[in-house]
């Protein structure tokens, strides 16, 4: 997969999302045909709840799993969105764990290429991060959480603010997709 193509595709996804949002939220709308009272509009079947495993930072500087039940769509890109939404929301209220992304990040876009590489675009940190431990837990917390719950994904590249970065804190090579790496999960 050419990363440049992935970035273009990400931009295209973002552009389409903006268009859809504009079309659905503003501007004059054509009158919609009324359905007959006797006919019920088909309601989408809610995604079945499934258990997912999320990885959060422990006080030992390693990743620790937390299980959570959430509606999980069938489409892989939607599943990635759900996993990342839950991951970015942080550990449960009673947990002693900490978020792996140590700032209020949001997921901007997701793209998957034909080789199974997922490209996820997170909002950039407000200030430089420090420490290889911080960098490793962020990267593999995201990468491993996605791949463990979406086996179709072979590797994940994290973009920040729509850009690929060589490294986030001066250590880990983030310039290409990272595969599952359980070395930083406690007990592995």
């Amino acid at each position: 997969m050419h990363r440049r193509a992935a970035l273009i595709a990400l931009a295209a996804v973002a552009a389409i999302a903006v268009l859809v949002w504009l079309a659905s939220s503003g501007g004059p709308r054509a009158p919609q045909p009324q359905a007959a009272l006797t006919e019920q509009a088909p309601t989408p079947t809610p995604a079945p709840e499934q258990r997912i495993m999320l990885l959060f930072a422990g006080g030992d500087g390693l990743l620790h799993p937390e299980l959570r039940s959430v509606p999980l769509p069938a489409e892989v890109d939607e599943r990635i969105r759900v996993v990342l939404r839950e991951l970015l929301a942080g550990p449960g209220a009673a947990s002693r764990l900490a978020p792996v992304v140590p700032y209020a990040a949001s997921l901007e876009a997701v793209f998957i290429d034909e080789q199974g590489n997922a490209f996820v675009d997170l909002s950039a940190p407000p200030e430089p991060l420090a420490g290889s431990s911080t960098e490793l837990l962020l990267a593999y917390g995201v990468v491993d959480s996605i791949i463990l719950n979406c086996p179709e994904v072979k590797a994940v590249q994290i973009l920040f603010g729509g850009r690929e970065v060589a490294t986030l804190a001066g250590h880990l090579d983030l310039s290409r997709p990272l595969a599952l790496n359980k070395r930083f999960i406690a007990g592995s």
Binding site: M1, R3, Q115, K154, A155, R176, P177, A179, N181
Partner: peptide, 13 residues
């Protein structure tokens, strides 16, 4: 370690 196809793709890119 890493996916060979990803490494190959990275090489090509």
């Amino acid at each position: 370690d890493g996916p060979s196809d990803a490494a190959a793709a990275a090489t090509a890119e």
